[in-house]
């Protein structure tokens, strides 16, 4: 993985894997992000909470290249400027994203979904001739195992249950082997048991030296993750720290948690 020894990169030297500074995005006058600053260390897992419209999804859009910020810096992995790259380039740098609504390729089998997500050469001329290598087959087995989908491998992804789709999508993220995972509401609509299993899975991923950013509403889940929490409000950071500190912050209680 990345060694975070400061290098001679032109951008500000930072020990962070992801570095957002003063990021502002507005849509027709509405400020979705307002001078947002955030840093994620390598191997760190971070939970992001905040009310609807706090800018959580927009933040992810900015990091993954879907939305260009009006102002501000977004740097990744020793100073790569993400604001200049498109989604595909950012994904190939090692940033994976899981959507709020589970998005898998419904007319492909579970196996093919993972296969398409496996890290590798994404250029069309290479993909046209690609054959599944032994290494890929091994990784495929491994990920199916982790995501608990080995039995479903031949099924079409469109036929999976909601929870299975969530897990398949996390499996696809793993297959990408990204340095940073952005996970948007992974447990929405899951049962308690599934939620716990998901928390365990995410912890395992993080322990394997991946940085993970989790956006979630479910406070029980956030608590189960037991990591540093950032609360967003109106496009900027309202509070940051351990879950207990943040959840006792009066402003956080006022705008988000309620009394």
């Amino acid at each position: 993985m990345t060694t975070l020894v400061p290098t001679d990169a032109p951008a500000p030297l930072t020990p962070s894997l992801l570095y957002l500074d003063g990021v502002t995005v507005s849509f027709d006058g509405f400020r979705a992000l307002n001078e947002l600053s955030l840093q994620i260390a390598p191997g760190e897992m971070r939970a992001i909470i905040g009310p609807n419209g706090a800018g959580k999804t927009t933040m992810m859009d900015v990091i993954t290249g879907k939305t260009r910020p009006d102002t501000g810096e977004v740097l990744f992995d020793r100073g790569v400027d993400l604001t200049r790259l498109d989604e595909a380039a950012i994904a190939n740098l090692g940033i994976g994203r899981k959507f709020q609504k589970p998005t898998v390729f419904e007319s492909h089998t579970v196996e093919d979904n993972i296969l398409l997500a496996l890290k590798g050469d994404r250029r069309a001329r290479h993909v046209l001739m690609a054959r599944t290598s032994a290494e890929e087959a091994r990784r495929l087995e491994e990920i199916l195992e982790i995501a608990g989908l080995s039995a479903q491998r031949e099924r079409l992804a469109g036929l999976l249950s909601h929870g299975q789709k969530q897990w398949l999508e996390i499996g696809m993220l793993l297959a990408q082997d990204p340095k940073l995972l952005l996970v948007d509401e992974p447990v929405a609509g899951m049962t308690d048991a599934e939620t716990e299993a998901t928390a365990a899975l995410l912890k395992r991923i993080s322990a394997a030296d991946h940085s993970v950013v989790v956006v979630e509403h479910d406070m029980a889940f956030v608590r189960a993750l037991g990591v540093k929490v950032t609360c967003l409000h109106e496009g900027s950071v309202l509070a940051e720290g351990a879950i207990d500190t943040v959840s006792e912050n009066p402003r956080v209680i006022e705008v988000y948690l309620g009394r």
């Binding site: 849509f27 027709d28 509405f30 979705a32 999804t57 927009t58 859009d61 879907k66």
Partner: peptide, 8 residues
């Protein structure tokens, strides 16, 4: 153009 999340 209408700009914003809704149209994406």
């Amino acid at each position: 153009a209408l700009k914003g999340r809704a149209v994406e």
